[in-house]
Design a binder for these strands. Structure first.
Lengths: 295, 295
DNA sequence: TAAAAATACTCCATAGGTATTTTAT
DNA sequence: ATAAAATACCTATGGAGTATTTTTA
């Protein structure tokens, strides 16, 4: 008889490709995991991994089993979530992932609202780039994520929360900020400062200024908008700044000038995404509403 | 932690709507099953069934869990089948369902071929009407079924095996069998003898002779073609006989006359069907080939 | 009062841990 | 020689069975 335990351990093994680390990741000893894998192989009647060939490899059978195990474990999470979904909205644990260009500006406002309105919600947070939190969401390590939508990932379901327009942030004395009818095409490639690779805001800025050849960009590995803005304030260049990131401190900074683009204004839509079919979809939509409210 | 055991027992309970019978159906004692259900309710944090209200009912949560449990258990069967699919084709156990209008004519030929060519195949058989064996297939009680295709059921995958034309079987002296260019329209409703309700052959005959008003049929609850043919031989009427059912005994019966319809000949296609996505699809296609060969 | 499910209690299978050995680079 | 997985052995959890009680229709 196949057990969930066997599938969980085998899934861990398929990810870690290492008995010891897989055992760690599910919180048991290496022999305990070995035994369950052995047991699973016995009931299936074939080996799932090729041992002791330096790197551990899945057999063809192992690969297929791993794939199906993943899906079964995900369905099982769905069952566990069913109960949570039946309870009052936004109660219990929720693990939320947020992209770095949003987290610092959204969370200080979102947190107070949620903890006041949903006192039984226990929110865990994770801040990482889209690719990482999407993977963690699919793996079940997160329950919902706040990203730029649409994600075009058929495994996700999403709800738009807010439109986040891009402004041009330039040094106060720069001529780039002079005109009133500025368009993304006016942004000069060699003065544009962007976040490091992998940050969706970087890609969005590049696609908005689609005439810019990424090769002409001055490479800049900043991972926070605050750093970028400090660079802009110091006269090092300009950047595309999401409206969401504009707080009092930025608005009052005499060294910065913020210019709204002419229509159609460039920007992005932020939304909440979750695993398609999750029974807690109602919760996630309530979360979306809360986000729309605080922004 | 939810276990497969809990889902299996709960699935049984959802079907049986009775703790004792559910326990029987999974081969454990009633307290053992009760305990697992209780455990599942505890981890989900809500009750799944309404006890002691005469008839046992599923709660709303219970209904959803039952649905998902079914699907998880089915996926799990898929994993178990993976190993079987990797082994040599058509080995191990296969539970086959066959409709009654096919079984007696197909199996005597199919069995010897299969046991000669695939000595490691352990075939279990079930003969019942389409609706029943389709449900048993979906529930995992059967692995494959031989039915009239297409079934138009998206949960099934199927492969055509043979075309089975309908002949008119009439009393030897009847004038209905006189002409050479006979069409289904020539069949008189009040002389047509059919299998009992639920048999697909009955429906097929009616749809072939679509001008016949079912209300004009003489009700006849036969469940085997042999009985019907005995009635025809006794001059009680005519019937649509699948070619597959024509053996030497029928052909030589002096009281019967078999007439082939003019083109386009009415008939049905028989095929093998299985759960969509089953890893043993290759086995089932091999079974189809064997059927096509013996007919 | 009769049927159905829950509880009580005992037993045993099995998962898990630690220590150790085997195996493969 | 070293890292990784398997084996040995012991412990403890928990699932199952039988007997019995509680519940409710």
């Amino acid at each position: 008889m196949i057990t969930i335990r066997q599938l969980r351990y085998f899934d861990a093994l398929a990810r870690a490709r290492h008995f010891g680390r897989a055992a760690d990741s599910v919180g048991v000893s290496q022999p305990a995991l070995s035994m369950q894998i052995r047991e699973l192989e016995a009931t299936l009647g074939g080996s799932l991994v090729e041992r002791g060939s330096g790197q551990l490899h899945l057999t063809a059978l192992g690969g297929e089993v791993a794939e199906r195990a993943k899906s079964i474990l995900s369905d099982l999470r769905g069952v566990e979530e069913l109960a949570a979904a039946r309870a009052a909205p936004l109660t219990g644990q929720m693990r939320l992932g947020v992209i770095p260009s949003v987290a610092p500006y959204l969370l200080p406002h979102l947190f107070p609202l949620l903890s006041e309105r949903y006192p039984d919600l226990r929110l865990s947070l994770r801040e990482a780039i889209t690719e990482d939190i999407v993977n963690e969401l699919k793996d079940g390590a997160l329950d919902a994520i706040v990203i730029s939508v649409p994600s075009d990932d058929p495994a996700l379901e999403e709800a738009d929360a807010v439109r986040d327009a891009f402004l041009l942030a330039a040094p106060a004395d720069s001529e780039a900020a002079g005109g009133e009818r500025i368009t993304p095409a006016d942004v000069a490639a060699d003065s544009l400062l962007l976040l490091a690779d992998g940050h969706c805001l970087r890609d969005q800025a590049l696609s908005v200024c689609h005439m810019i050849d990424p090769k002409r960009l001055r490479s800049f590995g900043a991972t926070s908008l605050t750093t970028i803005l400090a660079m802009v304030a110091a006269g090092q260049g300009v950047t595309l700044l999401p409206e969401l990131a504009v707080d009092e401190a930025v608005r009052r900074d005499p060294r910065l000038r913020l210019v709204r683009f002419a229509d159609p204004q460039p920007g992005r839509t932020l939304g909440v995404a979750w695993r398609r079919g999750s029974p807690r979809a109602g919760d996630y939509r309530a979360l979306r509403d809360a986000i729309a409210e605080v922004v």
